[in-house]
């Protein structure tokens, strides 16, 4: 419990530091007025807009106003949309979460078996093919890969829609496009595009873990005891290679949520990534700051979950140790 509370306090501090850095960073980039304003406007209208957005005040004043509002749970209104920044982000979050979730599922479900296979059959042609594929997987640029996926599977073969999110269904009170056939049909390509790089990493981790664990005494004892090969692999080996994979998946998930920008833009996926890239372009400071704070919080929660999972997977690990 102490551990969890301490972690949450850390999160608060981090979010605070983050807000300052981002606020200062965007302030330094420049004044959004020149991008926001109607080119037909006069100087008086320009001056009015500057006052309206609070940009006439010095930096420290702007920051303290922002902090004061933040303490009351108000992230400020978007300059572009004139709507609460946090609301804009939360509205787009489900689309991003489901995309990241689908990608992580693909990466784990395909990656672990392929990696374990490559580790067990080290040197075989199949294993070499898997490893070569994984190198390709994380070297191909995401942007190009997305366009190739669209060209081949949507334009040439016509199997999947080019872009967009499908119908949204409801299941157990959660609204997601993962619950409809049409939705799954739409999410397939973007999820695969997002998954490929992480799939490659999972394969490599599972393979090296398998090779390392395979040589250890307890596996040999299990063999000597006459346990079946599936049981050795699925129970004894798998459990012992999971720790680094869980870490990777946890961090990847955060990364997928925060940086799905390229995939979301190309597939016209209405998630947070598209929102944030537009906001950076328009210097929509409240949205950018709120977004990064949300991402910091997500990362910290994921970190915490990963640490808690460690102790479940490997009882030798105690949280007190993880805390250092």
């Amino acid at each position: 419990m102490v551990f969890v509370i301490r972690r949450l306090l850390q999160a608060l501090f981090l979010a605070f530091v983050m807000s300052f850095l981002v606020f200062a960073g965007i302030f330094a980039v420049g004044n959004p007025v020149d991008i926001l304003i109607d080119p037909d406007a006069t100087q008086a209208e320009r001056a009015r807009l500057i006052v309206q957005l609070g940009l006439d005040r010095p930096f420290h004043e702007q920051y303290f106003i922002f902090l004061g509002n933040l303490l009351q749970g108000d992230f400020g209104n978007s300059f572009v949309y004139n709507r609460p920044a946090l609301g804009l982000i939360l509205e787009r979050m489900p689309a991003t979460l489901e995309l990241a979730f689908a990608a992580i599922v693909i990466a784990v479900v395909l990656g672990i078996p392929l990696g374990v296979y490559a580790g067990l059959r080290h040197g075989s042609p199949g294993s070499q093919a898997v490893m070569a594929g994984s190198i390709l997987g994380f070297s191909v640029p995401n942007f190009w890969q997305a366009i190739m996926l669209i060209m081949v599977f949507s334009v040439m073969l016509g199997w999947f829609p080019v872009s967009g999110r499908g119908e949204v269904g409801e299941f157990l009170g959660i609204r997601s496009s993962l619950f409809t056939l049409n939705g799954l049909h739409h999410i397939a390509l973007p999820a695969i595009n997002l998954a490929i790089g992480h799939l490659a990493l999972v394969i490599r981790l599972a393979r090296s873990g398998t090779r390392e664990v395979q040589a250890q005494d307890f596996i040999r004892f299990a063999r000597a005891k006459g346990l079946s090969e599936p049981r050795i692999v699925l129970v004894h080996l798998l459990r012992n290679i999971l720790i680094p994979i869980v870490t990777l998946v946890g961090m990847s998930f955060g990364g997928l949520i925060a940086f799905a920008v390229v995939t979301e833009t190309i597939f016209a996926w209405p998630g947070m990534g598209k929102l944030i890239i537009d906001s950076i372009r328009m210097l929509d400071r409240p949205v950018v700051v709120a977004y990064l704070i949300v991402i910091v919080v997500i990362f910290i929660i994921l970190n915490l979950l990963v640490d808690l999972l460690y102790s479940l997977i490997d009882p030798r690990i105690r949280l007190d140790e993880a805390r250092q």
């Binding site: 669209i150 949507s154 016509g158 080019v162 872009s163 967009g164 190309i266 016209a268 598209k274």
Partner: peptide
Amino acid sequence: FLETSASRIASLQAGE
């Protein structure tokens, strides 16, 4: 709303 020109063109090509 298809912001990226590549996906706009691909959507037209695919008949979407």
